[in-house]
């Protein structure tokens, strides 16, 4: 899985290290850089691309120009606000980050918010899930799901029965699924075959 790159721009050392410790225990996150003031953050962001920025209110206010010039950054910004959610004092600037975390929030809530962002950022699931399987293997799993025997599959694809067996072994190895019923359900939930094709067509 690709990891999302985070940078932290938080003036309070304790808060910054606290955030690092939360992020380090989550999967799929790489901390690229930490900053305690606005200037190095600004020059870093002019040259580097990142997935997410966690930034304290005061550094955010001090680098407001940057966010005005690069509005795309706001989508990637998680603003750390004082106090509890719903009770925050508005910042000086009139620009707003999309996501915010409050200093008094419980760990679970913080993790939940960050995880939500990561999920959004994850590449959209492709229509047909065949990343693990080769096109040939995908064809074979389709035919297996339709109830064809190895012999029938071999005839249909002009392969030897031995080759079909090898493909089947590779498929089971990749997916960790051995049974025909398991492969069939896998094929349905990954859009390799429709449930109608499985349940209404007689096996031939």
């Amino acid at each position: 899985m690709r990891r999302s790159g985070f940078i932290l721009a938080i003036d309070s050392y304790l808060v910054r290290k606290g955030m690092v410790s939360i992020l380090n225990r989550m999967n799929g996150i790489a901390i690229l850089k930490e900053f305690g003031t606005a200037e190095p953050l600004i020059s870093y962001l002019k040259n580097q691309s990142v997935d997410f920025i966690i930034i304290s209110q005061s550094i955010f206010d001090n680098s407001a120009d940057l966010f005005i010039n690069y509005p795309g950054l706001l989508e990637k910004t998680i603003l750390l606000k004082e106090g509890h959610s719903g009770k925050e004092t508005p910042g000086d600037s009139n620009i707003q980050a999309y996501t915010s975390i409050h200093l008094m929030e419980e760990k679970e809530k913080i993790v939940w918010k960050i995880r939500g962002l990561l999920d959004q950022n994850a590449p959209k699931k492709i229509e047909v899930h065949t990343a693990e399987l080769s096109p040939r293997e995908t064809t074979i799993i389709r035919l297996v799901s339709m109830g064809l025997t190895n012999r029938q599959i071999a005839d249909k694809l002009f392969l030897s029965a031995h080759t079909v067996m090898t493909h089947r072994k590779n498929i089971s190895g990749k997916l960790g699924i051995k049974s025909v019923s398991g492969l069939t359900v896998y094929a349905i939930v990954n859009n390799i075959i429709t449930i109608e094709e499985v349940t209404s067509k007689p096996a031939q």
Binding site: S179, V180, S181, G182, T184, V185, I195, V198, T199, S200
Partner: peptide, 13 residues
């Protein structure tokens, strides 16, 4: 057939 799909799957599982 749909029922057989589900029960067959669960039995193998």
């Amino acid at each position: 057939k749909e029922i057989a799909l589900v029960t067959g799957f669960f039995n193998d599982y």
